[in-house]
Amino acid sequence: MGYVFSAIAFALLAVLPLFAGDYGTGLLVGLMGYVVLASAWALFSGPTRYVSLATVAFFGVGAYVVAVLNEVLPYPVVLFCAALTGAGMALVVGLSTLRLAGIYFVIFTFGLAELVRQLITWFEVNVTGTLGRYIFLDLTARDIYWQLLALAVLTLGAGWWIRRSRLGLALRVIGDDEVVAAHAGIPVARTKLVLFVISATIITLVGAVQAPRWVYVEPSIVFNPTVSFLTVIMALLGGANRLWGPVAGAVPLFLLFEWLSARFPDHFSILLGLMFLAVVYALPDGVLAALERIRRPSVLKETKA
């Protein structure tokens, strides 16, 4: 029943932009972008409870790969290169940091975005001698939306599969207690690494897919730390431990921010901060868990996106 329902929902989402104009499609692109980012983030950070602020590091690298390669390679190959770059970077980062305990990991990931940004800047300054890069690809907002939707299906599918696999079980144990997990014979570092790479690769692809919308790319544009923060807050609001949690957080928050940017164009940063506090204090396990607590006996119901 659930599969049929999901399939119908995704089919509906796929035809939606045919009836929406530029703004409606733009809204869908932004929305789907954050749905994938939050879901991909929760893929790793949900079960392991390692809060990663590196989202924009991978997102930005994805956009940069497209900016660098868009004129020399066909588009699908460019996307493949972006995924490869993201995975490779995640592997290096993961190998060197996933042994760090929680709080150090947070700080490291926050620094990672800045590190990558400086590396790219250094390279552009000293090797290529330009900073801004142009992306002229003939992709409409609709094409971008469909790619993001496909990515969303892929992410949620991966989340669903991992949940049922031994990998998911191992992750849950690690999230509860790493020491116990290690003693139980779970390869802690490797498990975390695999998840981190999957999550980061998807995030890189989101950046790569969205980049053609921006035409012009430079480090300060693609490494905007707000993206990392929004992703975290969306996933936490919905509940990072549930398959549909990040979706349930991303959709309302995205629409709320869109409304706020029009209603209160001067107060965005303040409202974002307050929202952060509210989510952490009032809904530590996310909206879905809170809803469940309110109507106790009902079975886990997955809300539609």
């Binding site: 104009g21 530029d22 703004y23 409606g24 499609t25 733009g26 809204l27 692109v29 932004g30 972008g33 907002a141 969205q210 919308r213 921006w214 544009i221 905007n224 707000t226 993206v227 869109e258 940017s261 029009a262 164009p265 001067d266 965005f268």
Partner: peptide
């Protein structure tokens, strides 16, 4: 407010136009 975010900016322009 585009919040210095290009994606938000592009969407805001579409919104203004449409």
């Amino acid at each position: 407010d585009d919040r210095s975010n290009t994606e938000d900016l592009v969407r805001a322009i579409a919104r203004l136009a449409e």
